[in-house]
Amino acid sequence: MMQDIPDLENLKKQDHQAFQRLVEKYNRQIVVVARAIIGDSLAEEVTQEAWVSVYRALPSFEGRSSIKTWIFTIVSNEAKTRLRKESRLVRINEMEEVIPAYLNGERFNNDGSWSSPPPLWDIESPEKILENEQLRQCIEKTIELLPDVQKSVFLLRDIEQQSLEEICNILDISNSNVRVLLHRARVRLMQIIDQYQETGQC
């Protein structure tokens, strides 16, 4: 798709349409990143501030990183600055999360062997899975409902293809935390696909 290539020349000139396309493409991700750092109540505000910063800084964008990594870094800095200014504690609570069954031990025997191994999938290609409208919606809804930090890690890695190191910097969390959260998100989605393939619904 053409929109995958941001029109850098026009963006640097602060062209209205090019900027609008940039907002269309990245606003959802920016809100997710902001929410992971500053929490739900201030995420919209920080997002707005970040876009203003992006707009102002565009003429001096030098392309040392990809434009999306650059934008993620700007929103991350806005959110971190805001977090330091807020006197009340807006730290995100991820403790209520339910660990996926594959990872909480319930599908294994005491010796670590499978008691409930993964089921066969009838639909075995990513294209076919995404062509299935109901299953696609299940996947989208599951991503939407992931806890904030986990969702952000997952989106940055598996949808936006940022490196683990970049994600650590953007979200200010350790490499091992990034890996644990990423794995939980992937496994949760895999379980939804399992469930759909076994029962026809999710």
């Binding site: 907002v23 191994p117 598996d158």
Partner: peptide, 22 residues
């Protein structure tokens, strides 16, 4: 082997979902 195969497929699926606009 199946677990890892399915996890890889899951990742490929979501990679194909990056076209949602605001």
């Amino acid at each position: 082997k199946r677990f890892i195969h399915h996890l890889r497929l899951t990742r490929l699926c979501v990679h194909g979902m990056n076209n949602n606009l605001a």
